[in-house]
Amino acid sequence: MEERLQTVLAPYKGKRDMLIPILQQVQAALGYLPDDAMAEIARTTGLPESRVYAVASFYAQFRFTPRGKHTIMVCRGTACHVRGAEKILEETERTLGIVEGETTKDLEYTLETVACIGCCALAPCIMIDEDVEAKLTPKMVSEIITGRNTA
């Protein structure tokens, strides 16, 4: 971790206003933001440690625990909501055996909800990594996930 972190941080010595891009890059490199990495960011930028965490914990994008290999994001946008996103989320939770915000024991999937992925016309939808699965029914959700696992 140390080496990857130093590579990311190298260009940012003393650059306090670059905190958010730095956090994004560190998360991209490490998968999440461990406490040690945030302390290192504080040392590099000259920001107080508390400030680094204050900013990181404000934004929804940042994670402080290890994540699964894949991320399933269930859209809770308005269009999805009126077209049954709640049931999609429940079915996803049931299929994976975890609830929103959790990661499966085998570190395969992390389940999250997102305010809107902007595919409202194809509601309800979920996003598995960068792929959008659209116009879903609860049945399709379990099929998609089980299908991926057996493939």
């Binding site: 809770r76 308005t78 269009a79 909501h81 305010a115 809107c116 902007g118 595919c119 409202c120």
Partner: peptide, 11 residues
């Protein structure tokens, strides 16, 4: 920073 759930015009 189009954040309204249900809006995707800016995108």
């Amino acid at each position: 920073d189009e954040g309204d759930p249900g809006a995707f015009m800016d995108r």
